[in-house]
């Protein structure tokens, strides 16, 4: 039997759902444990940063990195893991395109701090104290990670070999990825391990020529389970989103939220969807267009729910600071 796979799992700016998703592979987790030695998994086992720095370059076979990069600490660890891993995998929507934390790019650090440390109704902060990277504590100067002005996807900070999409990736997707790695059946570098075309391709709802006359939010209507959700006024991200999730949302009569990221030929998921929706709005003139558009709650958060950090205007490599 081949030597066991050295596997690292790390968690940056994310909710933790990706880690849970790995556990969600149920009994297959045992197969994973069988096939791999887990050398790093902070959520499940105790590790120190020194443990990482002690590892030799190439000593990790695969690093499943979930979460986006928004602090100096996360960047540092990502770089350290990259240097020691044969394969770096952006695991989940946050690592792949910034995910939900990426929506922070709609504003900036200053604004976020204002909200968090000053403006919320439950905050009392009369001295207006803000997090500082250096703090002269009684035990000496303390250092805290710095929060960046914007959120970065993993591949904007380090080179990434494969992408495993999803918020979180489905157990099937995870298992497919792991199987590919363990068996050595690796696709070309840069591949996203999921479908190629958009979700609509395998969606069985009935599709016709589209016109949106009214925008609806999922709680407002009970959608016809047979008909295309977009045609019913629900913003379904299916047309721009990569296939492979198994239609979990649409099968339950909920519109696709886009967590599998852009399909193969789409460079900017949000812009593409925005364009598509704007094109099928049933309006006569500028005024009625504005009126209809005004009824759409949070368009930016809808079309870029998972991919703002990788939208065309934000997609560039992070330089050194």
């Amino acid at each position: 039997m081949a030597p066991k796979l050295q596997l690292a799992i790390y968690w940056a700016a994310a909710c933790g759902g990706c880690d849970v998703a790995i556990l969600d592979t149920d009994e297959k987790i045992l197969d994973i444990a069988e096939a791999a030695d887990i050398v790093l998994w902070p959520i499940a086992m105790d590790f120190k940063y020194e443990d990482i720095y002690k590892m030799e370059p190439g000593s990790i076979d695969v690093c499943l990195f979930n979460g986006a990069i928004r602090t100096s600490e996360q960047e540092e660890i990502a770089k350290a893991l990259r240097a020691r891993s044969k394969f770096m995998i952006a695991f989940g929507a946050c690592a792949a395109w910034g995910g939900i934390p990426g929506l922070a790019n709609l504003t900036n650090r200053e604004e976020i701090f204002n909200t968090v440390y000053q403006e919320t109704a439950t905050t009392i902060n009369e001295e207006d104290i803000r997090p500082d990277t250096n703090y002269p504590g009684p035990e000496g100067e303390l250092h805290l990670p710095r929060i960046y002005d914007r959120v970065w996807s993993l591949d904007q900070v380090v080179n990434v070999d494969y992408y495993v999409p999803g918020c979180p990736p489905t157990p099937e997707t995870i298992w497919t990825a792991i199987l590919a790695i363990v068996t050595g059946n690796l696709p070309p570098k840069g591949t996203t391990i999921a479908g190629i075309k958009s979700l609509c391709d395998t969606c069985e709802r009935e599709k016709t020529e589209k016109k949106i006359t009214q925008f609806k939010r999922p709680f407002e209507i009970i959608a016809d389970p047979k008909k295309c959700l977009l045609e019913q006024g629900l913003i379904c991200c299916g047309p721009v989103t990569r296939d492979g999730c198994g239609h979990r949302c649409t099968n339950n009569n909920m519109p696709c939220r886009g967590c599998y990221g852009p399909s193969e030929k789409v460079s900017d998921q949000g812009a593409k969807l925005l364009n598509a929706i704007a094109s099928i709005m049933d309006v006569k003139d500028e005024k009625s267009a504005q009126e209809l558009a005004a009824t759409w709650e949070d368009p930016a958060g809808t079309v870029y729910r998972f991919s703002l950090a990788k939208s065309l205007i934000y997609d560039y490599k992070k330089g050194g600071e």
């Binding site: 075309k197 958009s198 979700l199 609509c200 599709k207 020529e209 977009l230 399909s263 094109s279």
Partner: peptide, 8 residues
């Protein structure tokens, strides 16, 4: 190959 038949 890329068309998903969404009819937009």
């Amino acid at each position: 190959e890329q068309c998903a038949g969404c009819q937009i």
